[in-house]
Design a protein around this nucleic acid. Structure first.
Length: 183
DNA sequence: GTACAGATTGAG
DNA sequence: TCAATCTGTACT
């Protein structure tokens, strides 16, 4: 019996949502996966966020919607990155989904670009409402896991404070499958 | 208009 | 170590 996560779950601060979504499930069509790694992008003050300084572009405009909308974009010209908006309308918070456990080979879904490829996610999902959509949503779970945190990946350009802040969250049991900071 | 870096990945 | 290859930004 599925219990879909609704609007209220996502309309909270991104750090909170990034942690609470761990161990819960994403559904895309027939595919299911447990969320095991996320990163929070907390808002206009976050130098690593596309919305730093309140910037609005054609790409990031959906970030300013209330929580629960898909913000998906292309990096390096090749890989899609799946984010879900958080917070209230007008405040550009979101979280990035970096790894899933889909029950098969974890190596196929242990990166933000990989999991989008596995689930067939692309720009056609841009702006989709995960609280209402018939093709992408999240399901609740009572499972409880031990959560760990680290600096976010690939954002060294954000300066010492924002690149070091521990805004990446993951289920500790999956640590061995996930990239770890070099130092 | 040009140049270049980026929330990555897999091959060499 | 490096290239694939699209978007946004900072220039000319």
């Amino acid at each position: 019996m599925m219990n879909r996560l609704g609007r209220d779950f996502f309309c909270r601060p991104s750090i909170q949502v990034s942690k609470d979504i761990l161990g819960k499930f994403i559904a895309v069509g027939e595919n299911r996966g447990m969320v095991v790694e996320t990163e929070a992008y907390i808002g206009p003050q976050d130098k690593a966020s596309h919305a730093f300084g309140g910037k609005v572009t054609e790409r990031n405009r959906v970030e300013y919607l209330e929580g629960g909308f898909v913000y998906i974009y292309l990096v390096y010209g090749m890989y899609w990155q799946l984010n879900i908006t958080t917070d209230g309308k007008g405040y550009p918070g979101c979280f990035l989904i970096r790894a899933l456990d889909c029950g098969g080979d974890i190596k196929k879904t242990n990166g933000p670009g990989k999991l989008c490829r596995h689930l067939g996610l692309d720009n056609s999902f841009y702006g989709e409402d995960v609280a209402e959509s018939g093709r992408i949503w999240f399901e609740d779970s009572r499972n409880r896991y031990s959560i760990a945190s680290s600096p976010r990946i690939g954002i060294d350009y954000a300066g010492p404070y924002w690149s070091r802040r521990k805004l990446r969250f993951y289920i500790k049991d999956y640590e061995k499958y996930l990239p770890m900071p070099t130092s």
